[in-house]
Nucleic acid binder design. Structure first.
Lengths: 281, 281
DNA sequence: AAGTGGTCTAGACCACTCA
DNA sequence: GAGTGGTCTAGACCACTTG
């Protein structure tokens, strides 16, 4: 049995973290009261472009985050739910699966589906640090420290799937949020993107720029680690010399499975951390 | 459009990493030769307990890792595949979805399904560090540094969903692999597990013990960060005083959605890192 | 226009859990 | 034995991409 395990979201930063950590665990431990799952499903759009299962999942998720459906409570069973919403069971199942994947619901055969206990951590959708920061209401700024064409070393070539020595665009940026430095990012881009302009990198996230060019990132492989920062890194991040930094190496692939970007980043660990939810399949 | 993003695996360690990083990128960049996907599907067991879609996914995955189906190549379309394997389309789709979720395949509407380019990173299934190490052929040993009952502080109570001050089992362990210290782990367990014995913790992973008690972890929420190690941590991990450590905080939930374990761990960053694959949904 | 994946349905049988 | 989720089928229509 190769029960591989699966994760769900990633990467949250907020300098003001922990502030919203109040527990709302008023419920009795064994509580499983069968809340009649309210009809917050009445506005399903059956002709629009949004998939039915997604609409259902959205409404369910909202209700769970609202605690309209309280933590720990049981959901109505699949067949009844399907009947009440006038959708097929596979459709309702797909919606539920989506939330199981997000770690909001748990299913047990023969038992039922329950809302996971415990504080729900806000999901962070992914794209790039720039957009993460925007989304959390901060004001990201970027300083381009370096921007040059040079030959790929072996690690870079391997990651991008190009020959060693091929000319690549090498960009170094410092990312700040509300004036505080958060990350130093080095990105290596294959020849096709060698014309990316320095100025646009100051104003937009890398992934925004790529998306505007019709490139959409579909898969990214990351390695997260730590080490002591170099003198230069510490000075840029405005931390004491020799301090720890959080590091992330990433290779991103587009929808054709082609490597698009390789990056080596380091983060100020007091201002940034990665959040991941693992879900057993 | 809430394109939340999804991850796939997590947590790889191996002191001897990077050793297997040879590229096998002999293929022409634009290559998409339509390899007739061999009949490595002929031994499907249609009556056993293993789901059909899982068997198909397994065989496909093996073929991709083997490069029997080369990186970048297109897969046969779903309907034909379904017909040839004599399964329904939903079944074959489910198998493919599983691999898309692992970051091995990419699908595009109107185009087809392709194998992702680029080095495939070995998946690491999840359970616990102990089993990770075992799986990678190392010999994990555990030293129990502390093992006591004491009242939960606010952070711990919040994570576990119990009242502050409730008695919890607090365990501190040092994990070594082949004699080298890798991690210091502090785990807090709710009252129900207060009877866990010190000796069994020396010999088995925490998750193994829990599983033997019929508890299965289904969801875990983790936060990964970095900081300078304390004097005690550095000495235990056998690194220079003040060195960086990689940290992970985790709350694990069982199949009833009940919090089972809260942990604060720190890792030697030269020997351990986290790997994550993100997949756009 | 042809080919692809994306969605959805209606119904079936099974395996598991619990009273 | 009743109720639950887990799997599977057969077929339908749609949206998108490419020639």
């Amino acid at each position: 049995m190769s029960t591989s395990v699966v994760v769900v979201e990633s990467r949250t930063s907020d300098p003001v973290a922990r502030k919203g950590t109040e527990v709302v665990n008023v419920d009795a431990p064994e509580q499983q009261r069968q809340l009649p799952p309210m009809e917050i499903f009445l506005d399903l759009d059956r002709s629009g472009p949004v998939p039915l299962y997604h609409q259902v999942a959205e409404r369910l998720e909202r209700a769970i985050l609202d605690e309209t459906i309280p933590a720990g409570s049981r959901l109505e069973n699949e067949v009844d739910l399907a009947a009440r919403l006038s959708v097929s069971r596979p459709t309702i199942r797909r919606a539920i699966e989506q939330l199981v994947g997000k770690g909001l619901l748990v299913r047990r055969r023969g038992i039922g589906t329950q809302v996971v206990h415990g504080r729900v951590t806000r999901n962070v959708e992914l794209t790039s640090l720039y957009e993460d920061l925007q989304r959390t209401g901060q004001h990201p700024e970027t300083r381009v420290l370096g921007h040059e064409l040079s030959p790929a070393d072996e690690e870079e070539a391997t990651a991008l799937g190009i020959p060693v020595g091929e000319t690549v665009l090498r960009v170094q940026r410092l990312r700040e949020a509300d004036g505080v430095p958060i990350a130093i990012m080095e990105n290596i881009l294959p020849p096709a993107f060698a014309d990316l302009e320095r100025s646009s990198l100051e104003e937009h996230g890398l992934y925004q720029i790529l998306r505007a060019r019709g490139v959409s990132i579909r898969v990214a492989k990351q390695r997260i680690g730590a080490r002591a920062g170099t003198a230069k890194e510490c000075s840029l991040l405005d931390i004491a010399r020799g301090s720890a930094v959080l590091t992330m190496q990433r290779t991103a692939f587009d929808s054709a499975g082609q490597a698009i970007e390789f990056g080596r980043h380091c983060y100020r660990p007091d201002l940034y951390s990665f959040e991941v939810t693992l879900v057993e399949r």
